[in-house]
Design a binder for these strands. Structure first.
Lengths: 151, 151
DNA sequence: GTTGAAACTTATTAAAC
DNA sequence: GTTTAATAAGTTTCAAC
């Protein structure tokens, strides 16, 4: 990938934009100690080089009806390509699955699952996740609180 | 918490803002089939009621020099308020900690940690995380691939 | 890198329907 | 909820330093 060099000013810009993606260029320039023109140039460059991938609203999951958020650790039985492929395709298609990570360790995939309530989650597990090929073991942790997020 | 009722239009607004947090009110209104005035009113209401928690730039972790991403499961020794409080304060202040979740199960907190390389991660663990009060046990999983993200 | 100014696009508010 | 109009504010582009 292209790896543009980021100087300290770029990093400060990214820092500010990460916590306030809707700040005006004037305020941003003032915060990072730059005049508006070069500040806008830098932001545009960061966007064009893919350092900034986009902007998004941080939405309260509970308000969206995602009252129940869990982390599901999944272990696949056999690591054969066909099963993995089908598992990944299914996971990508499931709207409840908010995130899916391939990790090392004694488990294979970590899923983040959001559902309106426990009943929906039950259906998701029994009717869908557990029926996927290769899924041998799953452990679930209920998320009680999001203490921090910088993403 | 206050749970305002979200009608379909609100949900469409949230949907658009989630993927494009910098869209102008005019474009947003057009996308959700509303005129600009009530659209702006709804967005403002969503912000004030806490449904929209803020806006942020999505930044390429690799560009930031976060080549190594891990998931750290942390277990605290004693669950006394003072320790928990200090632990949380420290975690919030650590820039390497990208996410922190309080969960149920045989562990207490799940952290997402990003570092430039393995050496930095080593320093983070030995000099900082392990020295926090109450941290008894940590297990670490290296993230090999982000298969899916909807957040 | 800086400032300054003009042209263009939005946001915001108010009014009337 | 809608449209329209006016003011204020922000963005972008350009020139000159």
């Amino acid at each position: 990938m292209t790896t543009p060099t980021l100087d300290p000013t770029d990093r400060r810009i990214l820092d500010v934009l990460q916590s306030d993606g809707r700040i005006s260029n004037l305020d941003l320039a003032a915060k990072v100690g730059l005049s508006p023109t070069p500040c806008a140039r830098r932001v545009r460059r960061l966007e064009e080089t893919g350092v900034i991938r986009g902007y998004g609203a941080r939405i309260n999951p509970a308000a969206l009806g995602h009252g129940v958020n869990v982390i599901v650790s999944v272990r696949l039985v056999r690591q054969n390509p066909r099963d993995i492929d089908e598992f990944l395709r299914a996971v990508k298609a499931m709207p409840e699955v908010t995130e899916c990570l391939l990790v090392t360790g004694d488990l294979d995939y970590i899923l983040r699952v959001a559902a309106p309530d426990v009943d929906s989650l039950k259906g998701f597990f029994l009717d869908r996740l557990k029926k996927l090929p290769g899924v041998s073991n799953t452990t679930t942790n209920l998320i009680l609180e999001t203490v921090k997020t910088t993403r």
